[in-house]
């Protein structure tokens, strides 16, 4: 699964995207956030406050309880400030 990061989530993680093999027990967006946040302190800082993190699977907004399913791409980003 491709994972993409934007804005200060990208800055804290340290890169814009990566490909990961999702462990079998990681089923929801929330599970993935928990799994990623343990990787190093950059990820921990990025996901320190999960409630602030927004997510999109295959370029469509999802809530944290959404299943990853066979999504090809998931993105994590702060609340949007366009317009």
């Amino acid at each position: 699964m491709k994972v993409r990061y934007f804005a200060w989530v990208r800055e804290r993680v340290g890169h814009a995207e990566e490909d990961i093999d999702v462990p079998a027990d990681v089923e929801s967006v929330a599970d993935l956030i928990g799994w990623l946040s343990k990787r190093d302190e950059g990820y921990a800082a990025a996901f320190a406050e999960p409630t602030v993190i927004r997510a999109a699977i295959d370029q469509e907004h999802v809530e944290h309880d959404a299943a990853l399913g066979n999504g090809r791409e998931i993105a994590f980003f702060p609340p949007m400030t366009g317009g």
């Binding site: 804005a7 200060w8 993105a75 980003f77 702060p78 949007m80 366009g82």
Partner: peptide, 20 residues
Amino acid sequence: KTRAPFWKKEHAADGTEGDW
């Protein structure tokens, strides 16, 4: 403003690193 995936980063006039 709330759903389109855009983010603004500030660039300060005094040249310091801006915030999101």
